[in-house]
Design a protein around this nucleic acid. Structure first.
Lengths: 151, 151
DNA sequence: CTAGAACCTCAACTAATGTTGAGGTCAATC
DNA sequence: GATTGACCTCAACATTAGTTGAGGTTCTAG
């Protein structure tokens, strides 16, 4: 049985292929301190295998709309230079879970507003257009309040 | 009782204040055919009052992460040059509702993955790090499949 | 009728998130 | 030991979604 190369670091091509992120994007992430790499004698990058997990985390977080700046901030809570422990990741996950919960809640709120009134043609603005067809907000309205979710 | 100026068109300052969108952004939306305006004899913009609703729709859609291109496409289904009817808005809302449902589902999926395994330190990758601590995916893995949601 | 606020256009700039290409080096194979 | 694919850096470009500023015009209140 041949030894499985479980600890060999990854080249950028391997990391790119396995993460689905282009090499140029990996360069970019490195420039922005989201990931890091060792170098060979010939100056080529070699990634610790746990970088794959970091990249998965980056991709995932981006897909829910978080900017790289925030992602970097979160990743900064992981240790430099060694593979994070499960405790390290668990700490991170706790914060992220809250972020996700908030976003889900915001979307649901929005959808409910939409259901509640856009479907009837008034977009949930101050009062229903069916009652007040000429002006969506009235001359003395306070703005489209229901559309401004709390930041 | 003074007549309420329910039909007077809005200046850009008024629209900006009431929508919470800067005048420069309104110019930008107009350049990109998301909104339109009449002009006074002196070339100043005058907006139909239902533009307020259009702008609310734009803002809202942006907050859920939709690009202006998609928003414009949706708004294109509304009639030019006249105030949309409730039927017009209802048609739009149907498509948007589906979009929102999809996004909510994607986020929930993500959160469940996170709960399921990032909390234990293995990020839901191919097999749990607790069992397989040296390599997150294994030397023959198929990539981080669980992290790739269907587009 | 005039001052000042509000508006106009156009061009240049910003920031985030990368991609592309030029010009050169490294490493694995025949 | 030469070839060839993978890699390197650096600079320029692309896209989205606007903002800023210069220079000029319009509108409204006194």
């Amino acid at each position: 049985m041949p030894p499985v190369e479980t600890h060999r670091p990854l080249t950028i091509g391997e990391l790119s292929e396995r993460s689905g992120v282009s090499a140029s994007a990996l360069h970019f992430y490195e420039r922005n301190a989201l990931i890091e790499a060792e170098r060979t004698a010939g100056n080529q990058r070699r990634y610790r295998r746990d970088t794959l997990r970091r990249v998965a985390f980056i991709k995932t977080s981006q897909r829910v709309g978080l900017p790289l700046k925030d992602i970097r901030e979160a990743l900064d809570s992981l240790p430099d230079g060694r593979t994070p422990t499960k405790r390290d990741w668990a700490r991170l996950s706790l914060r992220w879970r809250k972020e996700l919960d908030d976003r889900i809640a915001a979307l649901q709120h929005l959808r409910n507003d939409l259901d509640g009134c856009i479907g009837c043609g008034c977009l949930s603005l101050k009062s229903c257009t069916l009652q007040n067809p000429s002006d969506e907000l009235g001359a003395s309205g306070a703005g489209a309040q229901r559309w401004t979710l709390p930041e």
